[in-house]
Design a protein around this nucleic acid. Structure first.
Lengths: 205, 205, 205, 205
DNA sequence: CATGAATGAGGGTTCATTCAT
DNA sequence: GATGAATGAACCCTCATTCAT
């Protein structure tokens, strides 16, 4: 009786594990080669499966990238969903606030080097640029929320622009942080935070 | 009699013009499609020549990109070689200094949208990352020179790192400036300068 | 005790039912897609089984088509085996004779649209042309038998040829009859019979 | 001076010859293997060119078949465009009329065995069924024109149906004629004409 | 030198068939 | 027996590069 439920579930579980393995492989290959140069055969080989098997899980190369994007999005949301508790926003010291926002994001990017490697690339199919959208807009929204509290004098459009600038800085400097040797990383993060603080300080208060 | 000397010269001249035309076409196509998706046939077609002719001027697709990179480097040097006249460095007001460095660079990037479009792409063959090297290191060197005068307290390694951070900020924000609508561009440049000043001010003096 | 005999038999019976279901599904898919475009997965799906199970009953895709052909042959034999009772041949009016031959064949084809759909296709593997052979030669034999009685003046080779022509006409026009809307079908059958009569009449008697 | 015109023309000429060679090869391979089983590599090999070259002339496999269809259409039109001179229709003896219509069509089909082989196949992409359309409808139109004169008592819809039946008979029997050994062919054609006459005679007059 | 047809390796994808569960 | 994931050869097509004209 339980087997009737368990069997499909085990199958599904195995399938999901395989999908996850494929995405791991894809993340690595995409990160190393870029979207265009990555071949589906290379992904399959990296995942230890045959070319045909890849297509039992993903409709196309683009679908692999899409799924990878979705997984990154979900993982990132999980990683620091509560970091922006609104209560804290007003009271905290600026440096502390920056730490609270930046540190988990940096940690995520360090843990997932494929992330930037995939989305920083403008050679992606147009559909996938959109895939990165949710990630960005979530981040943008949070930064805007912070600015609303910390820099109330900004007009709405100034706030939007400033948020965009902050996110841009972060995204520009992240690859360097990720690529840095273990012992250099903290220093790089410090610089990133300096830049952010330098831009934020005049607006704060 | 003179023709024996003039002909080769004219040929060379015509050849150089052709090469330049090809690079113009290549810049446009690379900018629009990215390195990998750009086909040599597309470049040839955009240049109004046959695929075969392209290979009379360039050994390979990569060589076209390489030459384009070299031309950008040269153009950029020409564009603002004297901007950093060392005499000025100490005396000038920080904002003024930033203007003097940033404005020509922005102007160049706006005038050559293919530039960033080409080098911002991590899908380039490894050899070409190096191609962008000269440009970067020239810029880095100048920024370091500025820091040497304006932030004499920095250690050598701090100076190097700070210069890198400044260049990174600039490169990250340039695409947005270039892509911005005409009437938005100045506002974007202002933000860029704010970021640079925010990071530089604490070091200055 | 009886189970030791009954089980295998039930198994066999179930197996035959499964095979029949698979052939039903195959007939439908072949009819709709043609032999080449039909995938074994599609047949399996249409039969409500897994791809692997299909191969427990049939050695290959071609074997499925082969078995389908065999079943069609048998079904057709069953359908009108007695239609050509030799006693009738001489006495009957020509129109009546044609009705007796054509009507059951048309009925069979209407009831089994996959039949023509499968064998009318020259994209079948060469081995399968032979599969249709028994059907054809049975039909040919009967038509020849009719001609032997009704057109005794024909030489043996003329008789063979004429029989072939008649079968050919029938096979050419059947798809149209099958494809015709319900209310048009009778009119199409009338035309078919006109053609057959027009060819037969001069030979008759 | 003339070279400026001649060069492109010679190029075009060579290109057209190549296209024609490819279509010849395609006709042979399609005829032997059917549309689906025919590989573009096989066509290229049969034409003595590389796979890539095929695609310099045709966008896709389907485009090859399309072009082949178009060429057949044109050739057939050329082959017997004047056969139906309306003046003759009323006066001629029925056998003579049939000869005039059938003979050139048979000759064309014998000369182009790929023709039927390609269009008789229902495994063609839907778009190409249409490609055969012009051929069929031209033929249908002509037969209808004949019937209008020779069988004036038929209603419009009867005329259409009869024309269709006649064309169907012709198309069904042509493959046999084409496939027949040289010395058997005339006998096969005779049978074909007998069938047509047997159907037409009752309508005629 | 210019041309553009020719090349052919390789890419994404499909599908008949097999095999571990 | 049944399942469905796994396989891998083969397909259609692309494109950087070469070569005859």
């Amino acid at each position: 009786m339980e087997s009737e439920e368990a069997r499909p579930r085990r199958r599904q579980a195995r399938g999901e594990r395989r999908m996850s393995e494929i995405l791991d492989a894809a993340a690595a290959v995409f990160a190393e080669q870029g979207y265009e140069k990555t071949t589906t055969n290379a992904i399959a080989a990296a995942a230890g499966i045959s070319p045909g098997s890849l297509y039992q899980f993903f409709r196309s190369k683009e679908a692999v990238a899409q799924a990878l994007a979705d997984r990154f999005t979900a993982q990132m949301r999980d990683a620091h969903g509560e970091a922006f508790a609104p209560a804290d926003l007003a009271a905290r010291d600026l440096d502390d606030l920056i730490d609270r926002v930046v540190d988990p994001l940096v940690a995520f990017n360090v843990a997932n080097p494929g992330f930037k490697a995939l989305f920083a690339r403008p050679d992606m199919p147009p559909g996938l640029a959109t895939a990165a959208g949710p990630i960005q807009s979530a981040l943008l929204g949070r930064v805007e929320a912070i600015l609303t509290v910390r820099a109330p004098r900004l007009s709405s459009s100034e706030r939007t622009r400033s948020a965009r600038v902050l996110v841009q800085i972060f995204q520009a400097m992240t690859p360097v942080v990720v690529a840095a040797a273990e012992e250099e990383r903290e220093a790089e993060v410090r610089e990133l935070k300096k830049v952010l603080r330098g831009y934020l300080a005049p607006l704060d208060g």
